[in-house]
Design a protein around this nucleic acid. Structure first.
Length: 664
RNA sequence: GCCGGAGUAGCUCAGUUGGUCAGAGCGGGCGUUUCAUACGCGCUAGGUCGGGGGUUCGACUCCCUCCUCCGGCACCA
């Protein structure tokens, strides 16, 4: 036996729980349950990340204080998981006092060792560009390349973490511990990122308050990642629980691939800088993939009213859990396909496992008075030997897969065991033996099958705790209650339970015929009439809550005169093409009512196909200094837009306004 | 564009260091059993292993090249 500590990311409370969160959390729960079955001492941590400017702002928008806001959202996460049969040991919140104290302590430790220093965010600010420049963007003499004028040096004080110092140490770590970053392709990405060079990390902010104050300098609050990553360690505190953060404990962080870098670069660097030894670092950071839902990005699916979590309320949490763990290769991107879910449910759970249970229990009712057979001492045949061999290999294979964080493989082997049971019962044909009056043989066969079902109930428990219990109840067994040191995971068939009474059989996984499937799908996946794709988006007033505006860093107040400096004009897009070798860029030819149309380069390509833009009226910043993109490509102006680069919305003008019209 | 990864039966994917590796599951088709939730069991995929070239006695597995897809980075005034 050993110790196993598994974590999910702590979820940022600017969102409510959805299937993406559920996926990670269920995986963590299943893995911890597996480790419980092999007798390990386990700890499972999840929680919420509650600090930062975004939260502060959101709270303000809803006119409540940040704490009230985060209390509300955090509760939704906390209450969501038990509904999916997720059992965590602690739900940590970054606003928990013990967490905050731990973070401050960690900060101090790093500071004492000299890896946190007060510096300033070297803002090279170009007034012409109204933006910050990095040093490498500037021409000699700190001249802005666009305006050919010296830039202002603006400083905002910030504490830096000396990340650069740890570059080679991290590379050594990755080298020595190949399993630290999984899967392998992710490891390569991190490797090349770190090899490209690490810069010191700005670790504090003075522009907002909602965070943990920097010790000794209350004007600063900590960078949210410093605060957040520490949760994995702070949850264990300084006492008894630190046994889960010891060399003989396996520490596994499950993360989404989007936050892998924080966990594999910053987090170990923080720990090393605080004086943790290499053997006190987490053992595995495993990045799982992203889900699409019925082939669509989750955000779009949810918008269309398709919520995979509905499966849990319709069919029970176990079905959702099973499908997530079985259908999607852990570590790869996957699709949550509702139709495939029902197919698999019918095939794996209904026909394979459920029906086997049902037919065995039915036979027992008729042939052994509804009890486990009392005597199975007759001699084994080849059929039994083959079955026993299958049990040995499949239980071992499934165990290995769970251990290697491959639940989809583990469940595949588990299903194979069920198939082996079906093959066995078919070949052994106890009903035929019964007709021959061969009661000893019947007892033997049914006993084998009951024992196989018991083994299955254990192997399914990590993925489907409730169904496992229900299955065991039919077998006359109590629910699984793992204890540290008790190895419940089967290596062979469990011992016979002669005379034990069975419960009446009933469908454990009622299957759906075609009609029922359709009906169910209809409920799970509401049909939405696709809006005509390229209908000129009429300025329909938003029906419900409009998407929350993404407020950028709050600009200072300007005078009308300042505003008047910006020459905003209506432009008509005459032509548009992709810029070769630049994923995001489109080259636009825009009529501004001037003798010659202008060339404008804009980062729109992730959202718009070039031809979709021709003919649209847009808002152009007409007096922006030209920007050279190299290769004779110069942009004369800028388009106004909002949104993430793959879902931009262009600022447009109402009505049939002449190109060149000035906005005021 | 740079750096990774991937392109294998209708679908989802396995395929260690080159030589029974051309596979599994699901779906489909055929057959069959009757204990069972019309469920199980058996058989069935004739697939240029993305295209082309090369190394080799021999390559899905090594090298080169091209195409497509997916990630990371860059580009987004």
């Amino acid at each position: 036996m050993g110790r196993f500590y598994v974590t999910t990311p702590i979820y940022y409370v600017n969102d409510v729980p959805h299937v993406g969160h559920a996926y990670t959390t269920i995986a963590a729960d299943a893995m911890r349950r597996f480790h419980q079955l092999v007798g390990d001492e386990t700890y499972f941590l999840t929680g919420t990340d509650e600090h930062g400017q975004k939260i502060e702002r959101k709270a303000r928008e809803e006119s409540c204080d940040p704490k009230t806001f985060v209390d509300r959202i955090s509760t939704r996460f906390k209450e969501a998981w038990p509904k999916l049969d997720v059992v965590y040991d602690r739900f940590i919140r970054t606003t928990d006092p013990d967490h905050e104290a731990f973070v401050i302590d960690l900060w101090k430790k790093i500071a004492e060792r000299g890896d946190l220093y007060l510096g300033s965010y070297e803002g090279y600010y170009c007034v012409g560009c109204e933006g910050f420049k990095t040093e490498k963007e500037l021409e000699p003499g700190n001249v802005c390349p666009h305006h050919k004028k010296p830039v202002d040096k603006v400083k905002e004080p910030t504490y830096f973490f000396r990340l650069s110092k740890w570059q080679s140490r991290l590379l050594e770590l990755y080298e020595r511990r190949p399993g630290f970053i999984q899967p392998e392709t992710r490891r390569n990405e991190v490797l090349s990122f770190v090899k490209a060079g690490l810069e010191d990390l700005s670790c504090s902010r003075t522009t907002f308050k909602w965070g943990i104050p920097v010790p000794g300098d209350p004007d600063h609050v900590m960078y949210v990642w410093f605060d957040a990553l520490t949760n994995y360690r702070s949850a264990l505190g300084h006492g008894e629980l630190t046994r889960f953060w010891a060399p003989n404990a396996k520490v596994v962080h499950l993360v989404g691939k989007d936050i892998l870098r924080f966990h594999t670069v910053y987090w170990p660097a923080f720990l090393l800088a605080a004086g943790y030894k290499e053997e006190e670092l987490p053992d595995v950071v495993f990045a799982h993939g992203f889900l699409t839902v019925d082939g669509e990005k989750m955000s779009k699916a949810l918008k269309n009213g398709v919520d995979p979590l509905k499966v849990a309320s319709e069919l029970g949490p176990d079905v959702l859990r099973y499908h997530l763990l079985r259908a999607i290769a852990f570590g790869q991107d996957g699709d949550f396909d509702h139709a495939a879910l029902l197919e698999r449910y019918n095939a794996d759970l209904g026909k394979n496992v459920g029906n086997l249970l049902n037919r065995v229990l039915g036979l027992c009712t008729k042939m052994t008075e509804g009890k486990h057979p009392s005597d199975d001492s007759s001699a084994d045949t080849d059929l039994e030997r083959e079955l026993d061999e299958n049990v040995r290999t499949l239980t071992a294979a499934a165990r290995k897969a769970w251990d290697e964080l491959a639940p989809h493989v583990a469940l595949e082997h588990t299903m194979k065991l069920s198939s082996a049971g079906n093959t066995y019962i078919d070949r052994a044909a106890p009903w035929a033996e019964a007709k021959k009056g061969n009661t000893a043989r019947v007892a033997k066969i049914l006993s084998r099958l009951l024992r196989l079902l018991e083994a299955l109930s254990v192997m399914l428990w990590p993925a489907m705790p409730k169904k496992s219990d229900a299955m065991r109840a039919q077998l006359g067994l109590g629910p699984i209650e793992p204890k540290v040191g008790d190895a419940l995971w089967p290596t062979e068939l469990p011992p016979a339970r002669a005379g034990l009474a069975l419960a009446p059989a009933g469908p454990l996984f009622p299957t759906f015929d075609e009609k029922a499937q359709k009906e169910l799908l209809g409920r799970l996946v509401p049909k939405v009439e696709e809006p005509a794709p390229k209908a000129e988006t009429p300025a329909t007033p938003p029906a419900k809550a409009p998407p929350k505006a993404e407020t950028a860093t709050t600009p200072g107040v300007i005078t009308y005169d300042d505003f008047a400096k910006v020459d905003l004009r209506v432009g008509l897009i005459k032509a548009c093409e992709k810029v070769p070798k630049k994923d995001k860029l489109l080259k636009l030819t825009v009529d501004l009512g001037e003798p010659e149309p202008r060339t404008i380069v804009a980062g729109l390509a992730l959202t718009f196909a070039p031809e979709a833009l021709v003919g649209r009226r847009v808002i152009v910043v007409a007096n922006l200094a030209p920007r050279d993109f190299g290769g004779k490509l110069v942009s004369h102006g800028m388009l106004l837009a909002t949104g993430p680069s793959e879902a931009l919305h262009l600022a447009t003008i109402d009505g049939d306004v002449a190109p060149g019209s000035r906005l005021k």
